[in-house]
Amino acid sequence: MVGVSEMGAVKPLLAAAAGRRPERRPVWFMRQAGRSLPEYRALRADRGMLEACFDPAMVTEITLQPVRRHDTDGAILFSDIVVPLKAAGIDLDIVAGTGPVIAHPVRTAADVAAIARLEPDAVGAVAAAVSMLRAELDPTPTALIGFAGAPFTLASYLIEGGPSRHYAHTKAMMYGNPELWHDLMGRLVDITVTFLRVQIQAGVQAVQLFDSWAGMLSRRDYEQYVAPHSTRVFAELDGAGAGGAAIPRIHFGVGTGELLVPMARVGADVVGVDWRVPLQEAIGRIGPGPALQGNLDPTVLFAGDEVIAAHVARVIDDADHAIAAGARGHIFNLGHGVLPDTDPDTITRVVDLVHSA
């Protein structure tokens, strides 16, 4: 049965997302698959990021490394948000120390019109990795999480040509040519939905939509230019599991405290909250309904065991108050990703603290 471990219990992450009482509080970490792990760095020493993302055996091994080391309740598929863009024919690379770099930024109507649909076979390697991972994870309490970049964040990379501080070109298109903007966003919704459906059909048990850069928008701009497209992504994934089953849909952004209400309305079952807003306050803004995910500040992991224990206890207490106030459940996570210099043993201790709470 999907979501049930060999021991017969519903996997904790899936239980919390569905409003059921898990056997233990689920915990996983964004960017846990890599970055801080020496075994990851050794494996990737002579392999490019995109090359690794299209190698099913390597995807499987990297995804499992943090699960073996930390006993996390979620295994986040090793990939990158630009993988479906690459598979759809966009000329891009992931440059070490920089991030995704687009060879020809998308800024004209001709550029937008040239964006092709994603063919499912083009990400067949990802599907193969998911199948391999399910075979490894099914007997365990750990759920497999698939993911994709949200249309706005993908659009920002495409328009800017890479990471940006001010998103001037992105906002110029959004404000100055809204018709072209919505055309681009619609095409990216199609790519995102296809990529997530491939993962779901292959067997992921939850999905997370990363809108990493949405926090640079005002609420008005988010509601006008972004929310309709994110809504369509979540709507098209409703009942996308085997036999029409629902799978948990998680929505995450950074610096999105002012956007929590509209982000919660686009259709996610779980809303990620970064460290800037306490979980109890987040559910107060959103109102009863979704489960919450988060929200330990990643830098706390550098502050020593006593401080870490106090902050973990605070997040858990805040989450319990949020559940009492109407949150469906809580999945412990950081407010953003694991920082590269984080001691892996510290991450393991956090998992132990959460599981013993």
Rank of each mutant, 00 (worst) to 15 (best):
V2L: 15
G3E: 04
E6V: 05
M7V: 14
V10K: 01
L13H: 03
M30V: 00
M30D: 08
S36W: 01
R44F: 13
M49I: 14
L50K: 05
C53G: 00
C53I: 13
M58E: 02
V59R: 02
I62Q: 02
H70K: 07
D71R: 12
T72D: 07
G74D: 05
I76L: 05
I76P: 00
I81V: 12
D93I: 14
A96P: 11
T98V: 15
G99C: 09
V101P: 06
T108D: 03
D111W: 01
I115R: 06
A116G: 13
L118K: 05
L118S: 04
P120V: 02
V126E: 07
A128E: 15
V130F: 09
S131H: 14
M132P: 04
R134K: 15
T140C: 10
F147G: 04
F147S: 03
A150F: 12
A150V: 13
S156I: 01
Y157L: 11
Y167N: 00
K171Y: 07
A172G: 11
E179I: 14
M185C: 06
G186V: 03
R187W: 14
T192A: 08
T192V: 13
T192L: 11
V193W: 12
F195M: 04
L196K: 11
L196Y: 13
Q199W: 06
Q199V: 03
Q199I: 05
Q201F: 06
A202E: 02
G203P: 05
A206G: 08
Q208A: 04
D211N: 08
W213N: 06
A214Q: 08
M216G: 00
R219I: 15
Q224V: 13
V226L: 00
F234C: 09
E236R: 04
G239N: 09
A242P: 14
G243I: 06
G244Q: 09
A245H: 10
A245C: 11
H251E: 08
V254S: 03
V254F: 11
G255K: 06
G255T: 02
G257M: 06
V261L: 15
M263Y: 00
V270T: 04
G272F: 05
W275D: 03
W275L: 02
V277G: 05
Q280N: 15
E281G: 07
Q293F: 03
N295G: 13
P298W: 01
T299E: 12
V300Q: 02
F302G: 09
G304I: 09
G304W: 03
E306P: 14
V307E: 07
V307L: 12
A309Q: 10
A309K: 09
A310Q: 15
H311C: 14
V312K: 06
V315W: 04
D318M: 07
A319P: 06
A324N: 12
A325W: 10
I331R: 05
G335F: 02
G335W: 00
H336S: 07
V338R: 13
V338W: 02
T342M: 04
T342K: 08
T346Y: 00
T348P: 01
V350S: 03
D352P: 01
V354F: 04
A357L: 14
